[in-house]
């Protein structure tokens, strides 16, 4: 679809805006509706739009498949290890109050880290599942082409 001028111009305008909205939902989630889950989805939507317009190759050049594997696991690990940090600092699992001297700031810091982990996992998982389906279709097309060539 990269030859369609309207789509290309719209995408060039929309994609950065979608990423910006994603970041806003991620980091403003304590003050307005939103949080890591929604932010991750919005972020992945920006990337999926990019793939729809410019093709999977360029999308994977921006975010390689290996990075998706690693970062989706890193997100949940970040969450779990933040919980462990609470234990090491003398509290309960996933208790944030010990992180900083001021308990309110400590809670906010904990929430931001944990939400970042969720956002990372959700964004990468959404992109990963989409990529796997698109790649499967690509493999089928290749197999059908091979069959044609042999016939």
């Amino acid at each position: 679809m990269k030859n369609n001028g309207i789509l290309r111009v719209l995408a060039r305008f929309l994609i950065p805006l979608i990423f910006l909205v994603g970041l806003y939902i991620q980091f403003h989630g304590e003050y307005s509706p939103g949080g890591g889950f929604q932010a991750g989805l919005v972020f992945s939507a920006g990337w999926i739009l990019y793939v729809l317009i410019y093709g999977l190759e360029r999308g994977l050049r921006a975010v390689p498949l290996k990075a998706m594997y690693l970062l989706s696991a890193a997100g949940v690990l970040m969450y779990a290890l933040t919980g462990l940090a609470g234990v090491l600092l003398g509290g309960n699992y996933l208790e944030f109050t010990q992180f900083l001297a001021n308990p309110q700031s400590a809670q906010q810091a904990g929430i931001i880290i944990v939400e970042l982990g969720v956002g990372l996992t959700v964004a990468m998982v959404a992109m990963l599942i989409f990529t796997l389906f698109v790649r499967r279709r690509r493999q089928w097309d290749d197999a059908l082409d091979e069959k044609d060539d042999r016939a």
Binding site: G35, Q107, I111, E115
Partner: peptide, 23 residues
């Protein structure tokens, strides 16, 4: 927490283990 969005407070802090399960 000192934050106005109670949904975020419940999800990320009060019921943090539930949210970890979701992740």
């Amino acid at each position: 927490m000192g934050i106005p969005n109670m949904v975020a407070a419940v999800l990320a802090s009060y019921r943090s283990i539930d949210t970890m399960g979701e992740a």
